[in-house]
């Protein structure tokens, strides 16, 4: 039997009927049509489903949707600025070639966005640690790390980072 669930996604609140065991990834993709978030392994290993929960990266495949009621969820769609303007991190991934097939990209960008919010000028070791839970099977890791570095430069010191909404 479905139950009522109120989710706070990308700054707007939606009430919908969900199965009690529906995962956050299911509700985002199937009910809210936010298909930017991908399901890869479904076991919390690959990070394709990474979204931000109260600003922190989590695996949407491991979360029961009901569990996140009352907490702020940010998906890749929530990073776009007015008029569909890409965020600095998104822009840096496009310009630096951090994207090959693109499947892991939304997860990578969510992890990188949270990293740069907390650590605006990360070392390479910090970038690698922030992305340890995001797998890229095209193995474009070198360009991905470069993209995060480029994003840090785009954001620049003292800009207050990129506050995900």
């Amino acid at each position: 039997m479905n139950v009522e669930c109120t989710l706070e996604v990308n700054g707007s609140s939606t009430t919908l009927q969900v199965a009690p065991s529906a995962r956050l990834i299911d509700v985002l993709r199937e009910d809210l049509g936010l298909t930017g978030t991908k399901e890869g392994c479904g076991n919390g290993e690959c990070g394709s489903c990474t979204v931000l929960l109260d600003g922190r990266p989590v695996n949407a495949c491991l979360l029961v949707a009901l569990e996140v009621e009352g907490r702020a969820v940010t998906t890749i769609e929530g990073l776009l600025g007015p008029g569909g303007k890409l965020s600095h991190v998104q822009q840096a991934f496009v310009e630096t070639g951090g994207i090959q097939c693109g499947f892991c990209t939304p997860g990578m960008i969510m992890s990188a966005t949270a990293l740069l919010e907390a650590t605006p000028a990360p070392s390479d070791a910090e970038i690698r640690d922030a992305l340890v839970g995001n797998l890229c099977r095209c193995t474009g890791y070198a360009q991905i790390i470069e993209s995060v570095r480029a994003a840090a430069e785009l954001i620049g010191p003292g800009s207050g980072g990129e506050t995900p909404r």
Binding site: G44, G47, T50, L53, R56, P57, V58, N59, L62, L63, S111, A114, D129, A130, V132, G133, N134
Partner: peptide
Amino acid sequence: FASVQVRNL
């Protein structure tokens, strides 16, 4: 411990 995502859960 695991990954950032898992540490947050």
